[in-house]
Design a protein around this nucleic acid. Sequence first.
RNA 1: GCCGCGUUGGUCAAGGGGUUAAGACGCCUCCCUUUCACGGAGGAAUCACGGGUUCGAAUCCCGUACGUGGUACCA
Length: 504
Amino acid sequence: MSVRVRFAPSPTGGLHLGGVRTVLYNYLFAKHHGGEFVLRIEDTDQTRFVAGAEEYIFNCLKWCGLLPDESPVHGGPYGPYRQSERKEMYRKYAETLVAHGHAYYAFDTKEELEQMRESFKTEENTSPQYDHNIRKKMRNSLTLTTDEVKELLEKDTRHVIRIKMPEHEMISFTDMIRGEVSFQTDLVDDKVLLKADGMPTYHLAVVVDDYLMKITHAFRGEEWLPSAPVHLLLWKYLGWEKHMPQWAHLPLILGPNGKLSKRDGAKYGFPVFAMNWTDPKTNELTEGFFEKGFLPEAFINLLAVLGWNDGTEKEMYSMDELIASFDINRVHSAGAKFDYEKAKWFNHEWIKSKDVRSLKYDVRLVLESGGLIITDDIYLEKIIELVKDRCTLLPDFIQQAGFFFKAPTTLDVDAVKPKWTEEKKMFFEEYIIRLKGIGNWELATIENSFKELAVAKNIKPGELQLPMRVMLVGGKFGPAVMQIAELIGKEETVNRIAKALKEF
RNA sequence: GCCGCGUUGGUCAAGGGGUUAAGACGCCUCCCUUUCACGGAGGAAUCACGGGUUCGAAUCCCGUACGUGGUACCA
């Protein structure tokens, strides 16, 4: 079985959660069935002019591990994969439709259309459509005489080609996710197929391209469902009905109130794009999951199970496991609200379960970006092992591991002060001397020395641990104190205690 | 307005005629730990509403409400 799927991202404003999930489901389905994953870039109109959008999308997909088999950058037998490079062929198909009476030329200007919408507006119909009724009253090849049309065409009059929706027909098809869906043709308008600039609209392009690229399965967002009848009809009118792909309309990802938007992210403090995206027009930055410190594995994992599950209690999936168990029939038909808390939980789980070596590269980058200097690789590995359980997002490593590389600049004095005594101070002064005398610097020795001295001074060791911790790490967090002392070494331990003693 | 799609705890969700209605996130309590976490044991919290069909409905049907999408020479 060979399956091809396609995805048409809209590069207008970055790559949001819903977009990545659409690609992901395409990818999983294709890989599950051993098919190819085709990516075609829709670059009509405004999207074409968004600087860097295409490169950005590929960077995001690369990070996620979702690179397509065929695409503008990877090539393939059915190229070109960029819509603007395929412009010429669309007109041919649109003209064929006109010749067979399934489409027509429309010469109405923007003003005429606006006027139409205004004058036919009623209480029951607040937004009149260019449909089977209205088209009889407009300037098109259905109302004009053949000679008039010919003359207009010869004079290069601006025009579009619209589909001629049939009257009183019921169109239905089977969606892989929602089952049977049907529409009445009278309620669908005569959509523009070919624009005045010669570029196809999505409706024409998607059908022509899917046919030419031999696409067998098409997944897209639920927002496309209402225009499905147009596409169905086009497949039929172009005579390609038996090649029509199977459809799957994916549910939406929702925000705290309504459809998830960029604004939700800004408002509630979570990312909505895969990676940082700066709108070249407004210079507005939208934060990405990558920069926020998410692991790609976690990002893919959380997206995959937002709207799909395999019926078991399993929640953690690697990409390979997803490919193996993905089933389009188990995708929900209802939209799902995005929960950032759960998203972070996934990342935490992934950090905990990944081994040190595969974490090392990312952690090193984060620590270095936090101004820390790492020279010893083995040392870094030990520390990651020790602190990874307490890191939810990658930047948490700066807080949780930073003190292993650099003495804390500020100490949480308030945590110690209330219970600080002259006896405790004396204890630490003496402890410093003892530490200096330790020959074999290892956990047991450091700890025994500590306990012995505490007993001798008649202070409970527990009461001394918090001050010691604050001296070494700066606050009330981190792994076992003695373990920290062992790792940072004798000199550093002594220095930090001595320095802190002056502040308490 | 019209059309489409949807509705199981706060969130993600299993279950698709008979269940004490799984599980996860978050929240709360306790244990472990004289830090913070991890881990462990518990707890609170749900079938949108109204009619049918049926011995029996979260599950099937119809309405209503609510949500969401579409209604562009945007995708």
